[in-house]
Amino acid sequence: MTDFFNTYGNLMVLMVFNAMLGLSLYLPLMAGQLSLASPGFYALGGYIGAVFSTKVFQSSDGAFPVSYVLLEMLVGGLASGVLAIVVGIPALRLRGIYLALATIAFVEILRVLSLNLTITGGAIGIFGIPQPFNRPLKYLYIAGPLLLFSMFFMYRLERIRAGRALTAIREDELAAGAMGINPTYYKVLAFTLGAILAGMVGALSAHFLNTWNARQGTFDASITYLTFALIGGSRTFVGPVVGAMLLTALPELLRFLGGIDQLPQSVRDLFLNGRLIIFGLLIVLGTIFFPQGIITPRLWERRRRTKAVRPAESNL
């Protein structure tokens, strides 16, 4: 069992990180807004964590204090949130593909900036970021509760006024506006919440990865997070979490399949070296055959309906 945790500790932490990044993209998607900006905020949070821990807090001997990591996550989240409000208010007037394109531009501009500024270490980036834990798996002490909290938060959000307003905007923005919902307010709110989460994960991830550079916030990452949400399912917060965990584990699964001796050499070779080809194919097939994603509310809706119908009838 210890072996298992040593081998897959990294993977498990990544799965939890990615689940939160999937949620960060899912938040604006709740309001029907396709924003691909999450990697930008993730990169920003990471740079804040990296700069603070290597330049501001000169760490003494031993492990880096966990309280500082939490502080960095707080700062990373806040900075991302502020940037999200500044960018979001003008950008969220755009819809559909236009918003997606504007957020792609936002991520690219941040990437070019981080490649050229001195504080971000230019093309080399920042390395030697101190470790608060002696084993990768221990990052779950921070990441695990954060994911659980985010999921609880999402669970509540989907059931209160703000969450229902987001759903209303997704279904029909004009009608939602006519009902007295301020679409811009709620869209910026969802966008900002997603940015805060991405920024916090970024700050933690900088420690986990030990180095941070401009490759952390790229268009590729935007695609990956979007895939988490759409393959997992974009109608409930469970979707992006499950999607992120499955898709993050998939390359490892393929590596495992590639190690089975009974398979023909060419197939094993494809599993080992062509993992991303299979990943891409699954994205295409997933959109065609699971347009709603793997996890849909329908999975548990029937059970709830039988419970909910009776009180509704008694009101009539």
Binding site: L34, G96, I97, A100, I223, L226, T227, L230, G274, L276, I277, F279, G280, L281, L282, I283, V284, G286, T287, I288, P291
Partner: peptide, 26 residues
Amino acid sequence: PLRKRGSDRLLSLVSSLGVAVVIVNL
């Protein structure tokens, strides 16, 4: 295939991204 099913346009965006991933890695 997506058009014939009348799927959301965002999905064809994702499937074309999937194709890009396949081509680059191929």
